[in-house]
Design a protein around this nucleic acid. Structure first.
Lengths: 129, 129
DNA sequence: TTACGAGCTGTAGCCCGTTGCATATCGATA
DNA sequence: TATCGATATGCAACGGGCTACAGCTCGTAA
């Protein structure tokens, strides 16, 4: 899921990872989890989303559970049974959260790009300058 | 070493981690490694710096080695022997790198703060707004 | 010339996140 | 009312990262 990092003239890449945590530190929502949520929204299924995310269903399920526990509200509307076995969709609260996160992520990307450009410039300078 | 993350009115914290990697992905320089380098500069000893960093000497040494291999230049001037056992200091190239990183880190912090403020505002709004 | 303490190095073992598997549950629809 | 497949859940096993520890190397100052 990690997007290709940015390269310097010095053959360095900048990588970063962001996540949300709760007050007591007893849980977290990682970028991967948000990606998972986005895929559930798109695919309507935890199973399919987990596959697309290249993580085990077990992990996907656990991540959702811990995120919901941390936030103390429901993220996923789950439907079991039926010929199709079941399906899932995001709650309105989850959609709101996801959209806020995606905006956060986007702003972050832009800022990082800028900061890293400055880094490249600094590294290109000779030490004595 | 992780600094306290920022809190929303929704009792959420934003956390992040950055690191540099090389072309072939065969190594990385984490924020912890940069913290270690800063402490070596300050304390003049890998051993003391590792203690201050709360990592094992073994890991500190391995991190430095892999960073130097990745960059293919020397970061640390090491001195063995003597009554004091030895000491270490940063090379000029390392100091330059460290300073560039610290500036990058600072800009990162600012970006995070700004992006997270917007996130808070978005989360404070009612879904229908 | 020796003693000391940091730099170096290998390895056994722990911790913890994750996978993989097994198995149960549910319920719309055919 | 039988079926089918996704949701739900536990657990053994694996693997990577790290620590703990043991032991060595070095060279200066006493």
């Amino acid at each position: 899921m990690d997007k290709p990092p940015k390269q310097t003239k010095h053959e360095l890449f900048l990588n970063y990872k962001i996540w949300l945590s709760g007050l007591t530190g007893n849980g977290k929502i990682s970028d991967t989890t948000f990606e998972l949520l986005g895929l559930i929204k798109k695919l309507g299924s935890i199973k399919l989303a987990a596959q697309a995310c290249e993580i085990s269903y077990r992990k996907a399920w656990g991540d959702i559970e811990s995120a919901e526990k941390m936030l103390s509200y429901q993220l996923i509307e789950k439907q079991r049974g039926g010929k199709e076995g079941g399906h899932s969709q995001l709650t309105p609260a989850c959609i709101k959260l996801l959209e806020a996160y995606e905006a956060l992520q986007q702003k972050f990307d832009d800022s990082v790009e800028k900061a890293f450009n400055d880094f490249e410039i600094a590294m290109a300078k000779k030490p004595e300058e």
